[in-house]
Amino acid sequence: MSTLSLAARDSSTMIRRQLKRLVRYPSMTIQLIVTPVILLLLFVYVFGGTLGDGIGGGRHAYVNYVVPGILLMAAATAATGTAVMVATDMTEGIIARFRTMRISRASVLTGHVVGSIVQQLLGAAVLVGIALAIGFRPNASVVEWLAATGLFALFALAITWLAVALGLKSPNPESASNAPMPLIILPFLGSGFVPTDSMPTVLRWFAEYQPFTPIMETLRGLLLGSEIGDSGPIAVAWCAGIAALSYLWAKRIFNRA
């Protein structure tokens, strides 16, 4: 069997390990799904009337506006769980045991990444379903839905590799749970909940040039038909760059551990 075949087989085994972990310990998965749903309901029904009037259209318009930001927050929340699981594996000795076995080293991290992306896609599907039930009305074509799903999956890949690297770098699971927290805050400091032109100058500059804003604007444009402009290629570039750099960082830390 070739090296590539062995790596693919071992990666498949590690992916099944992660998916079984999600099934056996559903509390974390439920928490990662429920938290974004609560935020969605909170912003729509508590703040949506006032914030919706600010963007024009009231609560109905605000539901459409806020969904992309909540989706990215959901992905960042799931990435926090990934960082914790990676740190747990590193501190409980299972990685040392894997290294005594004839398996591909890369497969261990691949299992975490793919398992997390599956979790994020399922969570996003549930969140979109709830959003549709409370008034979210996208007008995207099938192609635009596929493009939005692809962009979200690319973002999930990027943020998951970053979470893996942070988990590897953390000395214990408790520290790993705090490391990705800034990622959850970034949608608030972008165009996730209010347009950037309503912010003070310094904050508006940061909001417009941080990575989450072009991703949210692209998702919003694909799903709702708003203007995308140059946000599309910028969003893809951010996701690809973060994924590549985070992968190299995680690989370096893992090989040195």
Rank of each mutant, 00 (worst) to 15 (best):
I159M: 12
N255C: 06
V143F: 04
D53I: 00
V142C: 01
A250W: 02
V128A: 11
A61C: 03
A235Q: 04
P173G: 04
I94C: 04
A250I: 10
S226P: 01
T160K: 05
A133D: 00
Y25P: 00
Y209S: 10
A153H: 07
V113Q: 14
V142P: 01
G69A: 09
V128C: 06
I103F: 10
A158M: 09
M28N: 15
V34K: 03
A78L: 08
D197Q: 13
F136Y: 14
F188A: 14
I215N: 09
M85P: 02
R9M: 06
F212D: 07
P214R: 11
L71F: 05
A79N: 12
G123V: 03
G48K: 14
A8S: 01
G135L: 05
V67D: 03
G225W: 09
A75D: 06
G49I: 00
G111K: 03
P182E: 06
L224A: 10
E208F: 02
A140P: 08
G123H: 10
G190L: 12
I117M: 15
V202E: 07
M73H: 03
A240T: 03
W249D: 08
Y62M: 07
S170F: 06
L189K: 10
Y62K: 01
F43E: 08
A250E: 02
E144I: 00
G229R: 06
R16L: 13
T196E: 10
I130W: 06
L224K: 08
T29P: 06
S198R: 12
G56Q: 07
G150E: 05
S141H: 06
A8F: 01
T50C: 01
T149I: 06
M90N: 04
A179N: 14
K169P: 05
L203R: 11
L127I: 11
A148I: 04
F152C: 05
M199K: 09
S175F: 13
S116W: 09
I70R: 14
Y65G: 13
A140K: 00
F188Q: 12
P233I: 08
E144A: 15
P200M: 11
A124E: 11
T50M: 05
T201H: 05
L146W: 00
S191R: 13
W145N: 15
V142R: 02
P233Q: 12
I95S: 15
G111W: 05
P68W: 09
A235G: 10
R16Y: 12
A244L: 14
S198V: 03
A124F: 06
T82Q: 10
L19A: 12
R105T: 09
A240H: 00
